[in-house]
Design a protein around this nucleic acid. Sequence first.
RNA 1: UCCGGUGUAGCUCAAUCGGCAGAGCGGGUGGCUGUUAACCACUAGGUUGUAGGUUCGAGUCCUACCACCGGAGCCA
Length: 437
Amino acid sequence: MKGLNHMTQRAYIAEISNYHGKDVKIHGWVYNKTGKGKLLFIMIRDGTGIIQAVIFKNNLKPEIFEACQNLTQESAIIVTGTVSEDQRAKGGYELQANDVEIVHIAEEYPISPKEHGTDFLMDNRHLWLRSSKQHAVLKIRHEIIRAARNYFDNLGFTLIDAPIFTPNACEGTTSLFETDYFDTKAYLTQSGQLYMEAAAMAFGKVYCFGPTFRAEKSKTRRHLTEFWMIEPEVAFCDLNQDMDLAEGMVEYIVTKVLENRQDDLEILERDVSKLENIKRPFPRITYDEAVEFLKAADADFVQGDDFGATDETIISEHFDKPVMITHYPAAVKAFYMKKDPQRPERALCVDMIAPEGYGEIIGGGQREDDYDTLLHDIKKHDLPEHAFQWYLDIRKYGSVPHAGFGLGIERTVAWICGRPHIRETIPFPRTMYRLNP
RNA sequence: UCCGGUGUAGCUCAAUCGGCAGAGCGGGUGGCUGUUAACCACUAGGUUGUAGGUUCGAGUCCUACCACCGGAGCCA
């Protein structure tokens, strides 16, 4: 018996249907346990799925059965048994156990199968990751990141990593995290964009993917102090081509999630029909057209301002796809935005607003490529000219029209997963009031 | 930073007009061969966020502080 078990092949739960009728070993943790005297049901999760092991007293050594009765939630075990099909089991398959090796008996687990508050769960984030919904969200996050990178890789983009430590504010508008850097100060980056502009002139099509930091004291469901962005930048590219790239990427990401993470969307009870709708072309409207929606809705909005969260929701409710809004007043946008030659008070920029009230997921546009204009804008924004000398250099040596955008990963995950709060879309969220765990 | 809200058992919550500190889950013990957040019986578990104050008496009322939640601004 022992000898046979030793030969038994290790299997992962996700591929259990390939082992119908065969003996396998499952390495995992006790998700839940129930039973009826001489019969125990142990739900085992192994990171790829959950399966029920049927522990019948007569099929195991007495001391092993007794040990199984004392298993606690999240204890680590290796179960050997025969894979069988059974309608009564969740997932359709179960494991008829003939041996159980106990790797570790877990102490009383803080997260019970009942309801918990968010603060408690976030204090136990290192354990909460094991719960099925959190697991599903992070599997989808992985799929989104993989899809975004594949999209650019397939189009011949080069991944260029931007620095995390920066000497100055990239945009000069929002506050930055300051840190000691030997005998000077450094700041944690809030965007890799400026570096991507330099890289685009070297490689043509580039993107970066990394963490960004904002020291804003924002306390909303859409904000984190540390979040991840994917930022493409393309030389010889105008605003319209930039929007083509953006909608192509979002369509590709949604398609891949629907293709590969069907089970996880189901665990999250996501309305998949809303995602199946996300096909090119996406609607493209101007700032002025968006303002008309707000006027019609009698929104509390000041002409010339940027849109607030409720404004974005009102606008997005007119569409069942992400909507791209262009030509904002240049005054509310960053200094590097190129002005519309037809209307110099407007910027050649684009924001993409996700459907269902999930807000802005993309911000981007065409960059100012004229040296004198850019220098003027830097001075106008009271930015230190010397710190931007290298950035200005890009406009001195073969300057070309170029454009790019930044996609916020966590907001995209929140939208695709249908999660109400962004903090569940990153493994270990950093907010104004949370630095632990 | 501003506005609003919440803090009671390990967790989720109740406690009427200011009058004995409660339940479910989780834990422990026992029972059960088809459970799906099992069920049944028994059992342990409390500085009511902190510090003051009012009162014969405070979980409940007052003041300050702390923690967290939601929203605004800003943004992805």
